[in-house]
Simulated assay, not measured.
Amino acid sequence: MACTHKPYDPADPEDRRRVIASAIASQRAEGLEPDRESLADLEEFITGTIDLTEVRARAAARYF
């Protein structure tokens, strides 16, 4: 049977929100909880304010 869902569109905020929600759910299933700063960065990614490169740079600045 063919796949019936639409492909991921990185320009669509709702698609970005679904992908981020899935990633966060996977982390929580592993017993991990993202911190407030990371969640805020991801929200900025969802709205298109920043890209993933900036999300990574901010995380690296906080943790490394």
Rank of each mutant, 00 (worst) to 15 (best):
M1G: 15
M1K: 12
C3E: 15
T4L: 13
T4F: 11
T4V: 14
T4S: 12
H5V: 13
K6P: 07
P7C: 13
P7G: 14
P7R: 15
Y8I: 13
D9F: 00
D9L: 04
D9S: 07
P10E: 12
A11T: 10
D12W: 09
D12E: 13
D12N: 14
D12V: 08
D12R: 10
D15L: 03
D15Q: 06
D15P: 01
D15H: 13
R17E: 06
R17D: 04
V19N: 07
V19A: 14
V19S: 09
V19P: 00
A21Y: 01
S22Y: 11
S22W: 08
A23G: 09
I24H: 02
A25T: 09
A25M: 09
Q27C: 15
Q27S: 14
Q27T: 11
R28M: 11
R28H: 07
R28E: 13
R28V: 06
R28K: 13
A29I: 04
A29T: 09
E30P: 06
E30T: 06
G31S: 10
G31R: 07
L32P: 00
E33F: 05
E33V: 03
E33P: 02
E33D: 10
E33R: 00
P34R: 01
P34H: 03
D35H: 01
D35P: 02
R36W: 11
R36C: 06
R36N: 13
R36I: 06
E37A: 10
E37S: 10
E37Y: 07
E37F: 05
E37H: 05
S38T: 15
S38D: 12
S38R: 05
S38F: 05
L39A: 12
L39P: 01
L39H: 08
A40H: 06
D41T: 08
D41A: 12
L42S: 00
E43I: 00
E43F: 03
E43H: 05
E44C: 09
F45Q: 00
F45I: 02
F45T: 02
I46N: 00
T47N: 12
T47D: 14
T47R: 15
T47I: 12
G48H: 07
G48W: 03
T49L: 12
T49F: 14
T49N: 14
I50N: 02
I50T: 04
D51Q: 11
T53Y: 07
T53Q: 09
T53D: 10
E54C: 02
E54A: 10
V55G: 04
R56C: 04
A57W: 11
A57F: 11
A57M: 15
A57D: 15
R58I: 00
R58H: 09
R58G: 07
R58V: 01
A59C: 10
A59L: 13
A59G: 13
A59S: 10
A60V: 15
A60W: 14
A60K: 14
A61P: 04
A61W: 11
R62F: 02
R62Q: 12
R62Y: 02
R62H: 06
R62W: 03
